[in-house]
Design a protein around this nucleic acid. Structure first.
Lengths: 340, 340
DNA sequence: CTCGCGTCTGGAAGCGCTTGCAGCGGCGTT
DNA sequence: AACGCCGCTGCAAGCGCTTCCAGACGCGAG
């Protein structure tokens, strides 16, 4: 394996100068810089970040902690973060918490503490006090996405606002009999998120003078499967059916669409459905949604962290609201005459 | 930050002994071992893999290279590998190649060469000669999943065989008018896979004495969206419709189901559909499929690599065939009388 | 009692880099 | 002409570990 020493030799420079030339830090004459660069290129030399990090304290590596890798939002964030990091020459270490509590525990007690990362992105994690402490004990910049993270910088969307925006879209079309599929109030991963979105829904309904019927608010986990089951129940049990369903996520909206089709309900004629996310499948299904640009959130998190890293690893806790856009497709329409 | 030195001091031992005690290598008396362990625990000491790897050459980190993070197969492999690595105390560095050729290039020329990983898992990558060389130039064990990888160990499924098995399932139900949705013959990521599966399909058809109609073989990328469009075309254009569709992946089968519903075709009454994969959505949609246990493949890859790592970083190239299971659900049935 | 061997331990030499420090010229200033 | 300053360079000291080596010790065998 070729090391910096070989490069120095070949370039006729000292190791120190080569290091400075290649890293861009410190003063190096253009001549030497060029010599170092070309020698490195000829030898196919790539610095060992291990050694580099030992000496400098910078690992050029960012940890990304996600609750799962399957749900759309997480994989979109991973994708956005991954591309941004690659661009910057950073590695991405993935910590997939998963369902196993032992895994979760070891991520916080062992993995993150190995001084292997310069910064951490935590996605939609509801952390215990102890976990939070361990996170902060790393003394590394942290960015939270999709949920509160006390003491860290966070990127979020205006959950209440978009829920209202979504509901208003349906109200604006003339719907009054609107059901809502919300998330479980599980306090393990999904925070108050279900609650805030539900709050926005209820607020919009109230403002419009529409009654919120408790039996039309059903909850599911944030998956297609879960919402499918919940929606079936909703559509089956109601003596009277809603004319529109606002689901708290696109995956839940998709589950709803699938369930609706089982009942022979045409969309949007018999039932309008909308979600929140900007899921890739939205296009195929013609799903009206509010795009929250998860990829962009991932990329923004990376930019924020990279800024903090060059800024001496300090990151002022701040709260950034990411913009969202209403995407109207064909799953929502004016309710059929007579159903209102 | 507490280092091994602090632990040594607290335990009343030398740094060398503590290192041996904690790593389990070399002879250490039970007493000393216990002293070291408890001192480490009290101080919350966790070795720095950076330093450790510099000194020992073992990074305790595995690189996982995937073409994308969205498609079901890849995320399932990630999940399986991630859990297995976590279990073993290894970090997982994710290299998401993505669509950007520049990213792809830098992964091979820079990232993988940083001597940061002990081993590499490459998922469904069609590599150029140069990329292959760079991979091997790392002198690290490599396992390929879901596609050939010359010179490396691979884990794969019997693509021809399962395509035949799937086709035979449909034939066995009495279908003869069977269409096939295959992958594009793109030689960038998906190898001969579309071809081999199509081959299995054709072989089974021929063996059964059923004609393979060229207009009933359509291709799409391996996504729901792509197959949706392809299936619409298939179902719209045929003067005569097939009674069953065998899609080369579950995502494509799902796209087909969505398309079929657009045409008012009931599944399985009007159209039987089956796929290959074991996609999570299969349950909701009642999709008959051949489960290839992608998670298991990811975990197996990790076990293989870990074995090689303890074995002095040597891995004999070998080809492991992963088992698959036919999962019959409700998307396939005997063809309606009169349609045959 | 001595020897040999096996077990256990600590000292110290790195692993491949970064960076503080000091030295060296060249240049503009007074 | 002397001075100071600045841009550039190389030396060398680590970063936090692992591991080779040699020494100390205990014990059974001769």
């Amino acid at each position: 394996m070729t090391g910096i020493k070989d490069v120095a030799e070949r370039a006729g420079l000292s190791v120190a100068t080569v290091s400075r030339a290649l890293s861009g830090k410190g003063n190096v004459s253009p001549t030497s810089r060029e010599k170092a660069r070309s020698a490195a290129a000829e030898l196919g030399f790539v610095v060992s970040y291990h050694a580099s990090s030992l000496a400098s304290g910078r690992t050029h590596n960012v940890g990304l902690v996600v609750p799962s890798v399957h749900r759309w939002f997480y994989s979109a964030v991973i994708e956005g973060a991954s591309a941004a990091l690659l661009e910057a020459g950073y590695d991405l270490t993935l910590y997939n918490i998963g369902e196993n509590p032992a895994h979760r525990h070891s991520v916080f007690t062992d993995f993150l503490l190995r001084k292997r990362v310069d910064a951490v992105i935590a996605v939609s994690l509801e952390l215990s006090e102890a976990e939070l402490q361990q996170l902060h004990a790393m003394h590394r910049p942290i960015v939270g996405i999709g949920g509160p993270l006390p003491g860290a910088s966070t990127i979020r969307i205006d959950d209440t606002g978009i829920a209202r925006k979504a509901t208003n879209h349906l109200l604006g079309l003339g719907h009054t009999k609107i059901a809502h599929i919300t998330g479980h109030d599980a306090y393990d991963q999904d925070f108050q998120l279900p609650g805030t979105r539900r709050g926005g829904f209820e607020k919009a309904m109230n403002d419009a003078g529409c009654p919120v019927r408790p039996e039309w608010i059903v909850s599911a986990d944030f998956t297609i499967e879960g919402a499918y089951a919940a929606a079936r129940q909703l559509l089956a049990s109601s003596p009277e059916r809603p004319t529109a369903v606002f689901a708290a996520s696109d995956e839940m909206a998709i589950g709803t669409i699938l369930a609706a089709r089982d009942f022979g309900l045409r969309i949007p004629d018999d039932l309008s459905v909308m979600g929140i996310d900007g899921h890739d499948l939205g296009n195929v299904l013609g799903l009206t949604t509010i795009d929250q640009d998860a990829k962009g959130q991932g990329a923004l998190a990376v930019r924020t962290l990279l800024g903090a890293i060059t800024n001496g690893l300090v990151l002022e806790p701040a709260d950034t609201e990411h913009p969202t856009t209403l995407v109207v497709r064909t799953s929502t329409a004016v309710p059929r005459a007579g159903t209102t």
